[in-house]
């Protein structure tokens, strides 16, 4: 579990009138552990993740990833429908979706590379360029904004001394402004890789960054 020393262990666990531990909210026991091979085929397409450990030069879809890819394919009437999850899978492995990844995905799914590029660029979650190990996305949309999201974004940028979209020199952090993350009741919501951090205030920022830097943030 996370050792992040701030009030919110994630998912608004100890805000409001509830007294839940992070273990109860997002522990393996009650959430499940992410199977690299995708687990049951019904959920295989739901596991592409944004993870910190990635290798931009990895061969795509080998070993358990290949198994997951095959499981994803098995759930759709045609290959094209597997495109979004497959792009997500490529990103989980390599950290971003490079032209070469698009080409490979196109080949596997029997699509034209230009088509795959068109689809990949439509969606915001496929990083077209390499990003930091931790991609910090701060929601600044209306509900969060009313509660000070601009200051939270500013705090992340200032603490890391970067401009929006820029990656820190050590390659650890990229900070961007995000659109609504559907956690409006827990402002400000910040998504860092796969995880939502809720009720984030500017004073929480150093703690989050340092925990991430020291690897104590508890990534899945």
């Amino acid at each position: 579990m996370s050792e992040i020393p701030f009030k919110n262990p994630g998912w608004a666990g100890n805000t409001g009138e509830f007294d839940l531990t992070e273990e109860q909210v997002r522990g393996d026991d009650l959430v499940g552990k992410r199977p690299v091979d995708g687990g049951h085929p019904s959920g295989a397409a739901s596991y592409p993740y944004m993870v910190a450990d990635r290798n931009p030069d990895a061969t795509l879809f080998e070993g358990p990833y290949r198994e997951r890819f095959e499981k994803i394919l098995s759930r759709y009437p045609d290959k094209q429908a597997a495109l979004l999850p497959t792009l997500g899978l490529a990103q989980e492995i390599r950290g971003h979706v490079s032209p070469e990844s698009m080409d490979r995905v196109a080949e596997l799914l029997e699509l034209s590379p230009a088509y795959v590029r068109g689809v990949a660029t439509f969606y915001t979650m496929y990083n077209k360029q390499a990003v930091g190990r931790h991609l910090i996305q701060v929601c600044t949309n209306v509900s969060c904004n009313l509660c000070g999201a601009d200051e939270v974004l500013e705090a992340f940028l200032r603490y890391n001394d970067v401009e929006p979209g820029e990656t820190t020199e050590d390659g650890n952090f990229t900070v961007i402004e995000a659109e609504c993350l559907a956690a409006c009741g827990f402002p400000t919501c910040v998504q860092i890789n796969s995880r939502y951090y809720e009720n984030v205030t500017p004073t929480d920022v150093p703690g989050i960054i340092e925990a991430l830097r020291s690897g104590k943030a508890g990534e899945r």
């Binding site: 032209p99 698009m102 080409d103 699509l111 034209s112 590379p113 230009a114 088509y115 795959v116 590029r117 068109g118 660029t121 439509f122």
Partner: peptide
């Protein structure tokens, strides 16, 4: 029937393009 052209990006940022240098 050679899908070389596509719309890249979306909204007002969208443009027509090919697969990079292809």
């Amino acid at each position: 029937q050679d899908h070389r052209l596509t719309v890249v990006e979306r909204g007002s940022r969208s443009v027509i393009d090919t697969f990079f240098e292809e």
